[in-house]
């Protein structure tokens, strides 16, 4: 456990009456890539936002998040955050079009990050910006500096976002569904780009992904979330080749690949947050649930090479 970069313990987050995250724990080693997966509303983006210090005042948290030499991100002051955010931790958002400012050229936006975060002169920032744009595969970077976001395709905008996020060589990059708005050929380009660039810097990366196949191709480890609780977590190979949690099995049964003949998706959906069972939140839909499941939360504990939170795990596949 020497090379741990991020160690989140029992992160709980409430918005009013709603417990959005319920004792989420996860760890990430230096240089590792992690996939957060789970259905819409599971809390994937909320985890990323909490760990970037971008929560509004309406949310209250408990638990700890040790990051590098910081004992706890969750109790940092705004000043403490200013020194970390954008420098040691950075984020690529799902919708680059919305995250970029439409009224400034992309070159100016990139250069201003460099000036602000690294204190570079105007001239230095400009040439660094051109170099960064080139490194993320933008042709004619010099000419593209003066382009406004709307003049670039979705894929190009996302490259600019990656360049901005990497500008200060962060130790940890969050990529929240960086390619959901893009099609598959461009998706492959952007995921590769993020992996190459983080690897080259020895940085770690947390991807929020919807696509399990893509997670298996790009991430060392995976965390499966359901309604704010971690269900199963471990090496991607172990978890996805032989899932032992009923919810991970459910997710897998819905995967459509080229040539899939029949799908038998379970009916039902996630209950509202104010009607969650006290125990395992999956118990309202789980085929293996019994009375104990609904009443008592199963602890996350090691089972067959991964961590599992379930009273009645599935047998080996």
């Amino acid at each position: 456990m020497n090379d741990i970069l991020l160690d989140v313990r029992d992160l709980t987050l409430d918005r009013g009456e709603k417990r959005i995250l319920d004792r989420v724990s996860l760890t990430l080693a230096k240089g590792e890539t992690l996939a957060l997966v789970g259905e819409s509303g599971a809390g994937k983006s909320t985890i990323a936002i909490a760990l970037m210090g971008l929560l509004g005042r309406s949310a209250t948290t408990s638990g700890t998040a040790r990051f590098d030499d910081q004992p706890d991100l969750l109790s940092l002051s705004e000043r403490g955050w200013a020194a970390l955010r954008g420098r040691k931790l950075a984020m690529v958002f799902q919708d680059a079009g919305a995250a970029l400012n439409p009224s400034f050229t992309v070159g100016r936006q990139l250069a201003s990050v460099l000036r602000r975060q690294l204190g570079l002169s105007k001239f230095e920032a400009r040439s660094r910006a051109v170099a960064l744009m080139e490194s993320v595969g933008i042709n004619d970077a010099e000419g593209r500096m003066t382009a406004y976001p709307h003049q670039l395709s979705g894929g190009m905008q996302q490259r600019v976002m990656v360049a901005i996020a990497l500008a200060c060589n962060p130790d940890l990059l969050f990529a929240d569904e960086p390619t959901s708005a893009l099609d598959v050929t461009i998706q492959a380009q952007i995921i590769r780009l993020i992996l190459e660039q983080t690897r080259a810097r020895g940085a770690s990366c947390i991807f929020v992904l919807h696509d399990l196949a893509l997670a298996s191709q790009s991430c060392d480890r995976i965390v499966v979330l359901y309604a704010g609780q971690v269900m199963e977590a471990g090496p991607t190979e172990v978890v996805l080749r032989d899932p032992r949690h009923p919810y991970t099995r459910l997710l897998q049964s819905c995967v459509i690949e080229i040539g899939t003949e029949d799908l038998t998706p379970p009916e039902g959906s996630v209950p509202p947050y104010d009607q969650m069972p006290a125990g395992c939140r999956f118990s309202t839909r789980c085929p293996r649930a019994d009375a104990r499941c609904a009443a008592e939360r199963p602890p996350l504990q090691p089972v067959a090479g991964r961590d599992l939170a379930c009273w009645h795990p599935e047998d080996a596949a």
């Binding site: 598959v184 050929t185 998706q187 492959a188 380009q189 995921i191 590769r192 992996l195 696509d211 399990l212 196949a213 893509l214 298996s216 191709q217 790009s218 190979e237 996805l240 080749r241 690949e257 080229i258």
Partner: peptide, 13 residues
């Protein structure tokens, strides 16, 4: 480019 379980990531266009 279509994602495929455990295959290497596609060579991009």
């Amino acid at each position: 480019a279509a994602p495929e379980f455990f295959a290497p990531l596609a060579e991009p266009l």
